[in-house]
Design a protein around this nucleic acid. Structure first.
Lengths: 362, 362
DNA sequence: CCATTTGTGTAGAACGTTCTCCGTATAACG
DNA sequence: CGTTATACGGAGAACGTTCTACACAAATGG
């Protein structure tokens, strides 16, 4: 229909946080501030502030006057100004990568706990890049958010601890039970992997391979490593410790498909696989379908996360459920308790469970 | 391992934004402020601010001193304080519902444009609830963010216009070419639907039904309505104007499946369908598979959004591509130009295209 | 009836920036 | 040499809250 007038010059000058501009923004309707309310109600600014914060020392009559004026004027406190002094009633939620259908569940859980209060969540997406992740965390601190929930952060524990000195932090999907600066909320990923392997063993499979992801950063802390440990242990206990092979699936696109194709055409391809995540399992199943490898007749598959896609009839993927929703709820409650003043670290481990579906033959 | 000490009392007092607490947060390492930098560099606070904003009137030597000190001290300006006076270099991104795999693309596009500058995006999730949407927008305004991108908002145009008086706004997936307070970025959803129908007609199908979603709020503005219009027009032009049936699929869970099941078992079930969105198309295909309805032999399907799931070999769903990434990029550029001072509204329409796959027999 | 406590409200200093003036030193010009 | 630009740097008032410290009145206690 119409199109943009004036191509924007996306001029980026030097420096990390230099401004470029000078023009004034057009005049915006002027704000109703705490002063406006105070004047309207015929009381002091401090009185309004007290009412807002539900602080001690306000009579019913004063409160009535103030809340009345607030209602009439439609006053909302400025979070920016609040941040300068007290709380902002906002928490930051840092996600690795929104493409994973497991994360919406976590977000829903966070919001469910936050909603009844007056708290709100702002989400940042780190895209699994340490630098972006760092700068988002810094921004959230600079906004004076009241606390942060980091989901599967890539950063090493020491760095998170350093941030935790500036702001309450809870990490989800990050295994560091020794951390004493921040809290961690996890499902028992080792146990989850064991359950997956046990279920395959029960179905009679003996040659079980794990499809994993190789993560350069973070050894033990990553959920992927934890699941590898669980896989190995379960295989060992079943007497297959000598042969518990792991294949790493790359993230980037042409190599990703290549690797999977190579795996599927391998002459010694196992009869069953355990995938560290549904998002990989689904691609494997898709390519298997294209290549005529039948699931589960030729290849049994168990995934991880029990994401919404796994439940689709077309996919029908058995998967380890770790209830993202509950994870999000617990993380939020834990963060709030830390914001309230708790300082000893807390490390919670929830139990995952198996959801059986067609990809795991009965 | 361990678990939470002290069950948190999620006490929620009355009032909209009342604080409950009183305890002090534990002492945090004190911040490096602009004053610290000024002292360290032996210059005035104003000088540091000038350097930060790349403002006029700084010598090279001064700049060098200041940037040196910034580096050494690891200074980061407080966004909260910035918000009180000038810009925050943050934009708000309001999403309907992250479950739609189309949205990650939009986010990626936004970040791609933002990243080279020093801007950052904070995401809020409105969950398609008007009230939550409203309060998130208000929060973003209260944070003094520099602008907002609303993706498929549920709010009526007048309300968005009112917000737009307080903050620059660009709406994506919201058809209101008459809006003069804010910009809109869309793909031509009418044309997209036409393309879908035309492709089915070319394959020889004559009885084509549309599966849609009934949206109470927002008539013409919603992408769903636009696609219905396009569907009807294409049918009309092909001479099937008298029979262009639309079935609405509910969102909520048991009724959703019921309705789809009923549709699939209908005696006069059409040979081809056009789904307003992949997320519905995929569920239909899944249930079809379970019920023995073959795609595309018994039922051809064309979806909308060309989401990542549609591309999966197991799914193989033909779909209208609207390049969420580009949508996000354009929206961001448009927003930035508005932040720079533009005041006339701009309404952009991009062209969608068809991605052919197996669900649409050749 | 005086001293103390308790309840209620206000003044005003932060918080960490931005940005408008304003002063001063140097350069340019006649 | 005097006048006027021009470039550079600084003082200090906002911005909209929170929160400590205090004033005052009424209630309580001896």
């Amino acid at each position: 229909m119409v199109h943009m007038g004036g191509s924007r010059d996306s001029s980026v000058k030097s420096g990390k946080f230099m401004s470029v501009d000078n023009r004034k923004p057009p005049e915006r309707a002027d704000r109703v501030t705490i002063r406006t309310v105070a004047a309207h109600a015929g009381v002091s600014v401090a009185a309004v502030s007290k009412v807002m914060r539900n602080a001690y020392g306000v009579s019913d009559s004063l409160r009535a006057k103030v809340t009345g004026s607030i209602e009439v004027l439609g006053y909302r406190p400025s979070r920016a100004a609040r941040g300068l002094r007290g709380r902002t009633f906002t928490i930051g939620l840092l996600l690795v990568d929104i493409r994973n259908p497991f994360l919406p569940e976590v977000i829903a859980g966070v919001n469910a706990v936050l909603a009844p209060g007056h708290y709100q969540a702002m989400i940042g997406v780190g895209e699994a890049r340490m630098q972006l992740e760092t700068s988002l965390i810094e921004s959230m601190i600079d906004y004076k958010m009241d606390g942060l929930i980091l989901v599967a952060p890539r950063l090493p524990s020491e760095i998170i601890t350093r941030f935790a000195a500036q702001i309450p932090i809870v990490a989800v999907g990050y295994h560091d039970p020794t951390a004493d600066g921040f809290d961690t909320i996890n499902t028992d990923d080792q146990r989850g992997a064991e359950i997956a392997v046990e279920s395959l063993l029960e179905c009679g499979y003996r040659d079980i391979e794990m499809l994993s992801q190789l993560a350069r950063e973070g050894h033990k802390v990553s959920v992927v490593r934890q699941r590898e440990i669980g896989y190995r242990r379960a295989m060992q206990q079943a007497g297959f410790g000598s042969s518990a092979p792991i294949t790493n699936i790359p993230l980037q696109s042409p190599r990703r498909e290549e690797t999977i194709r190579k795996f599927l055409t391998r002459s010694d391809r196992p009869r069953a696989i355990f995938c560290w995540s549904d998002i990989d399992a689904i691609v494997v199943m898709s390519m298997a379908a294209e290549m005529g490898v039948r699931v589960p007749e030729d290849l049994a598959v168990v995934g991880y996360d029990n994401s919404s896609i796994a439940a689709l009839g077309l996919v029908n993927l058995a998967s380890i459920d770790q209830s993202g929703r509950e994870l999000g709820q617990t993380a939020t409650r834990t963060l709030l308790s830390r914001i309230e003043g708790r300082s000893e670290a807390v490390h919670i481990l929830q139990l995952p469970s198996l959801v059986t579906r067609r990809s795991l033959a009965g």
